[in-house]
């Protein structure tokens, strides 16, 4: 019998947001996510469950982080907004099929 044990210490950052992820807030979100990525955290869970509104500028901040993370071997995973209207922009742009989206941050973290 062969038994192999390996230990993985994976650096996963969970970022939780509330309120509106719109053109006004997107620069701040973009800067925060860039900071994490440049610090070497390429696996990021963004909890959008309490976000009430997302527009294309807010979406762009998430997409940019996702592309940079994936190119570094990581990913950006999203917790689905509870408010269906806040999720609508993902469906309209088909990014609901591009992002790995789950119902809780715990599920997304444990799946890594």
């Amino acid at each position: 019998m062969d038994i192999t044990t390996s230990t993985h210490n994976v650096d996963i950052v969970v970022v939780a947001m509330t309120g509106r992820l719109d053109a006004l807030e997107s620069a701040q979100v973009r800067a925060l996510l860039t900071e994490h990525i440049e610090a070497g955290s390429h696996r990021i869970v963004i909890d959008l469950s309490a976000v009430e509104f997302v527009d294309s500028a807010g979406l762009a901040a998430l997409v940019q982080a996702m592309k940079r993370s994936r190119s570094a071997g990581g990913d950006v995973r999203l917790v689905r907004p509870t408010d269906a209207n806040a999720y609508r922009v993902f469906e309209l742009t088909k990014f609901d099929q591009v992002f790995d989206i789950g119902d809780t941050a715990e599920d997304l973290v444990s799946g890594w």
Binding site: S56, V63, K67, L92, T93, K94, F95
Partner: peptide, 20 residues
């Protein structure tokens, strides 16, 4: 119209409006 198979960072505004 953005290509769904090649996600881009911007350019989705009009696509969103037209569906709403």
């Amino acid at each position: 119209t953005p290509d769904a198979d090649e996600p881009q960072v911007r350019g989705y505004g009009m696509m969103i409006i037209e569906q709403l």
